[in-house]
C-alpha cells in the first residue's frame, strides 16, 4: 500500500505541476480521482503499456473526461509515453487533449468529454467481452455531477439487463461540480442528495460503498469485484473530496478548474511532499 500511496501522490503532483505550468486545465476533480487511478493502473488492471491495443487488456473509460490530466499522469507513470510529454497538455498538436482522444494517444480506450457518454461505451466493451468470450474487465469512472445526465441511467438499465458482471462503474462522489446549487443550509454549493446507492441498486446493480481515498478499501473493493460470483454489474460509490490532498483546494468548488498562483503551487507541492516523506 505504501507504493500505491506514493503513486497516488505522484499523480497529484503531476496534476498540479501540469496545470500550473500549462496555465490551463481542471484540478479539483482530477485530485479526487487520483487514488482510484493509482489503484487501477498500479494494482488492479491487467494492461501492457508497450502493447496498448492488446485485445485481452482490461479497459478503462474516463467518462468524466474533464479529469483527463489525472489519467495522463497515471499513464505516463505507467510508461505509456514519456513523462515530459505532460508539458504538452492542452497545447495545439498535443496528443494530450483537454479531454481524452483515443485517436491521438495510445492507452486511451475511449474518447470522452461530453458527460454521460463514456459509460455507454463501457457497456459496449463489456458486451463485446461477453460476445467474444473474453475475460477482461471494463472499468468506467463517472462523476457524481455527471450522474445528472439521463444517458447514465439508460446505460445502467441495459448493463443490468445483460447481466454485465464484467463491468465496474466507479462513481467519484466528490459532491461538488463546476458551479452547483446554492442552498442556505448546505456548505459550499454541494449538489442535492442524489441517493446514489439507492438508485444503482434499484437499477439492478451490486453496490459497494467505499472511502475513495482509502487505498486498501479501493483495492479490496475492486478485487472483490473481480472474484465476484454474481450476475450483476458493479457500482462502486467512492466518497471523495474534491481537491483532495491540498488543504486549501479541498471541498472548494472554485478549484474545479483554476490555475494555482506561484505561491499556491509551491504550497500545494510542499503539502504533497510531506505525504511522501
Amino acid at each position: 500500500m505504501k507504493d500505491l500511496q506514493t503513486k497516488a501522490t505522484e499523480i497529484r503532483k503531476g496534476i498540479i505541476s501540469t496545470v500550473y505550468k500549462q496555465k490551463q486545465g481542471h484540478i479539483g476533480g482530477p485530485l479526487s480521482a487520483a487514488d482510484m487511478l493509482a489503484v487501477l493502473y498500479f494494482h488492479t488492471m491487467n494492461v501492457k503499456p508497450d502493447q496498448p491495443d492488446w485485445e485481452n487488456r482490461d479497459r478503462f473509460v474516463l467518462s468524466k473526461g474533464h479529469s483527463g490530466i489525472a489519467l495522463y499522469v497515471a499513464l505516463a507513470l505507467k510508461g505509456y509515453f514519456p513523462y515530459e510529454e505532460l508539458l504538452t497538455f492542452d497545447n495545439l498538436h498535443s496528443r494530450l487533449q483537454a479531454h481524452p482522444d483515443m485517436t491521438k494517444l495510445p492507452g486511451i480506450d475511449m474518447s470522452t468529454g461530453s458527460l454521460g457518454q463514456g459509460i455507454s461505451a463501457g457497456v459496449g466493451m463489456a458486451l463485446a467481452a461477453k460476445l467474444q468470450e473474453k475475460d477482461y474487465t471494463t472499468y468506467v469512472m463517472i462523476g457524481d455531477g455527471e450522474s445528472q445526465e439521463g444517458q447514465v441511467w439508460e446505460a445502467a438499465a441495459v448493463a443490468a439487463r445483460y447481466k454485465l458482471n464484467n463491468l465496474v462503474v466507479m462513481i467519484d462522489n466528490n459532491r461538488l461540480q463546476q458551479y452547483g446549487w446554492k442552498k442556505e443550509d448546505m456548505a459550499d454549493r454541494q449538489a442535492p442528495e442524489q441517493s446514489h446507492a439507492e438508485k444503482w441498486e434499484a437499477f439492478g446493480w451490486k453496490v459497494v460503498t467505499i472511502d475513495g481515498h482509502n487505498l486498501e478499501e479501493i483495492a479490496t473493493g475492486l478485487k472483490q469485484v473481480k472474484n465476484a460470483e454474481n450476475k450483476q454489474p458493479i457500482a462502486i460509490i467512492a466518497n471523495t473530496i474534491k481537491g483532495k490532498g491540498v488543504s486549501f483546494m479541498e471541498g472548494n468548488f472554485q478549484w474545479h478548474s483554476k490555475v494555482p498562483t506561484e505561491s499556491e503551487y509551491h504550497l500545494a507541492i510542499s503539502e504533497l511532499e510531506e505525504v511522501l516523506s
Binding site: V61, M110, G116, S120, G124, M125
Partner: peptide, 12 residues
C-alpha cells in the same frame, strides 16, 4: 443515446 454509445464501445 445509450444505443449509439454502446455501439461505439462494441466497435472499439
Amino acid at each position: 443515446q445509450n444505443l449509439v454509445g454502446v455501439a461505439a464501445g462494441l466497435a472499439t
